[in-house]
Amino acid sequence: MALLEVKNLGISFGGLRAVDEFSVSIEKGELYGLIGPNGAGKTTVFNMLTGVYKPSNGVIMLDGQNITGKSTIEINRAGIARTFQNIRLFKAMSVLDNVKVGLHNHYKYSTAEGVFRMPRFFFTEKEMDKKAMELLSVFELDSKADFLASNLPYGDQRKLEIARALATQPKLLLLDEPAAGMNPNETAELMNTIRFVRDNFDMTVLLIEHDMSLVSGICEKLSVLNFGQLLCEGNTFDVLKNPEVITAYLGD
């Protein structure tokens, strides 16, 4: 039984068929890549998987649970967390607080307990701090915990977004172009981080990426989208050699 099972997923915006008959099956612990030329519908697939868009047809099963058409919040609780192509951090909040927002649904106390500073507030906040710092240290951000998120350098902002997504304790992590705007050194570092996350958090990762060095470096399997349709899928090595894929990227 695959962790994520997507069958015949499709969505139309007016007359435009943005994604059509998209199917994918991702096993637990896999590092899966979704690639394709600009405008192929990759981010649209992500948005459907996370409930931002409601798919017109198709079924999404996560760990045996049907999550098709559910709200973003329900899907996050079911176990999908994501990062965004254009970084979406809580900019006016500290790095630590960003991660603590991610922990929100796992460490609970009521508003009243917070306002009146009941014992559970102190206890839970301490636990949250500890857990958040643990996560930050994975990404070597623990020394910058007090920084404002907007003051972090670009690469660190990307990492913080991943840390925040991991804080929601997902089963599946979706990364939307994690290496966008990074230099080769930062990309190499990011590859290590993603691998580390997969190995140490027992995470399944689905990522969209344009940087082929990253894709070929860490993804075990790939799906290629072109004009909203699945062009081919399979092992990374085979897919990248496929002449159809090369044509889609480079033209005839």
Binding site: F90, K91, V101, T111, A167
Partner: peptide
């Protein structure tokens, strides 16, 4: 106390980026 609690943090997160706040499961 409200601002510096779990609820306040959620509210500030929604202010800073509603889409991201929803993606981490905030109502």
């Amino acid at each position: 106390n409200f601002i510096n609690s779990r609820t306040g943090r959620a509210v500030k997160a929604i202010r800073d980026n509603a889409i991201a706040a929803e993606s981490v499961g905030l109502n």
